[in-house]
């Protein structure tokens, strides 16, 4: 069984303690969100899980067959056109060039890009288009585990919803597992099976919320109701410092 298992994970940058005693397991087909205020160590946790940072204390064992990453900013290579940017992950995985280009074109169309955009450089794309390309690049490799680092935070609501529904579609087909970092509770509630609340200084998990209803059954009403409920939670209020002072 593929899974990501994090056990008593601690992390420091210099003398600053960033993360303390993080434990969780992400099973295949599951969506796990980590929510918390900015600067709380969420990104560090994600980087440790994805192997972009070396684990110093504890362990983060990833047995998923493949993984990919979508960042908060698109991080496209400015000197490559749309299709070559999407194909990057495929080529890195050893796919033949012609096949990679073909697959990239197909997924680009699915993600709402036009054929006339294919040859464009990132500088000629809008922010939303760039994020579409970034998502296409992450999903074209058909990862069994997807790392998301607040990829929706700079998008307008329409595009946000469009990209999320692509993910929800994949989730309900059990095609993908997701580790999702966000500070947007509604986003987390729409997508996750489980939400971990990460409190800052140092980052540690204070509470866990579970949502059983299948993601494609969750309508706006459900998401609003659950958001209202979670915002009443004592731990959420103190973690996000929602109290009026």
């Amino acid at each position: 069984m593929e899974k990501l298992e994090v056990k008593s994970l601690n992390h420091h940058f210099g003398f600053t303690e960033i993360l303390r005693d993080i434990n969780f397991t992400l099973n295949k087909g599951q969506v796990l969100s980590v929510v918390g205020p900015s600067g709380g160590g969420k990104t560090t946790l994600l980087h440790l899980c994805a192997g972009l940072l070396d684990v110093e204390e504890g362990s983060a064992t990833n047995t998923f067959a493949s993984s990919s990453f979508a960042f908060q900013d698109a991080r496209l290579l400015p000197w490559k056109n749309v299709i070559d940017n999407i194909a990057l992950g495929l080529l890195a995985a050893g796919e033949k060039k012609s096949v990679a280009i073909e697959k990239s074109k197909k997924i680009a169309l699915e993600f709402g890009l036009e054929e006339s955009d294919f040859e464009k450089f990132p500088k000629d794309l809008s922010g939303g288009m760039r994020q579409r390309v970034s998502f296409a690049r992450a999903l074209v490799v058909k990862p069994s585990l997807l790392f998301l680092d607040e990829p929706f935070s700079a998008l307008d609501i329409g595009l946000k919803k469009e990209l999320q529904s692509i993910l929800i579609d994949m989730i309900s087909k059990k095609e993908i597992s997701i580790l999702f970092i966000t500070h947007d509770l509604m986003e987390a509630i729409r997508l996750s099976d489980e939400i971990l609340l990460l409190k800052a200084d140092p980052g540690h998990i204070v509470k866990k919320f579970s949502y059983d209803l299948a993601q494609n059954k969750r309508d706006d009403e459900y998401v609003y109701a659950q958001s209202a409920k979670i915002l009443q939670d004592r731990e959420i209020i103190t973690t996000f410092e929602l109290e009026l002072k």
Partner: peptide, 12 residues
Amino acid sequence: DLKEMSDSFKLP
């Protein structure tokens, strides 16, 4: 950031 991205895709 691009270096991190290339690491995340395990570019040879």
